[in-house]
Design a protein around this nucleic acid. Sequence first.
DNA 1: CATCAACCCTGAGAGC
DNA 2: TGCTCTCAGGGTTGAT
Length: 297
Amino acid sequence: MPELPEVETIVRTLRPALVGKTILSADLRWTRTLAAPSPAAFKKSVEGQQILSVSRRAKFFNLRLSTFNLLIHLRMSGDLLVKEGAYTPEKHDRLVLTLTPAPLPQGEGSGVLVLTLTPLPQGEGSGAREQSLIFNDSRKFGRVWLTADPDEVLGKLGPEPLEDSFTPQMLYERLHVRRRQLKPLLLDQSFIAGLGNIYTDEALHMARLHPLAGSDSVTAEQAGGLWRAVREVLEAGIRSNGTSIDWVYRGGEFQNHLRVYGRDGQPCPVCATKIERLMFGQRGTHFCPNCQTLEGD
DNA sequence: CATCAACCCTGAGAGC
DNA sequence: TGCTCTCAGGGTTGAT
């Protein structure tokens, strides 16, 4: 499911449920889900950590903890969800973090004494309601990192396209530093961070640029159009809570606004020419052969 | 550098 | 119903 708008949607949904909670225990149900550190070190380090903030960098979740950062990438089929009550295993659950509603009393190891004056929320029975943060991932491509230095994982990412620091001039210059085809270049997370197959095809159509055009052939004016298209497509995707195309991700509705992705054989919304689809690099690419020409108009 | 194939995995849908 | 084949919102690695 994961492109920038889908990850952003999940971050906004989970943030209020997670911030302030403390991780009581970790259940790693598929070892290779954990990229680093070792399972034993992970369990030891993550237990007792409080979740201070929940944010996004490109397609990564970043949970800032008391002394570590928990980074999560959903890759192709991952999902993150919070469930109330006692955990019951579901198919494809790979990592389960049990959460407490408040910091653990007497922080062991940290030497921090926590005094809780507010009573715990009323739950069923004696204690507060238990919660679990669940990473579910059928294809097992998703990865989790626990690190003191998030730059070890995020350091090579390119600019964040929705931030003010990402400008048309920056895009133009970066396009001309390298000589590559536009489609694979936009998918390269060290060039721009957050675009995936859907939003790249949509942005190129909006900017009227051919997916195979050389990056160094793009004029300053075209780069400005691409800059605008990237931001418009990502912002529209976020407003729609992402794109729901198959069983992997549900809840978004941007699939109803797609111009080219998955629409091969159907008319281009601009000129009614049939949308074409071609494969390269194992990725389907959708474009309008009339609107998006290689030589410019 | 740029390009490409192989690989990591499971499941859905099409065609037979 | 069941088999085979292709494809999937991603990214890394190693060869050329």
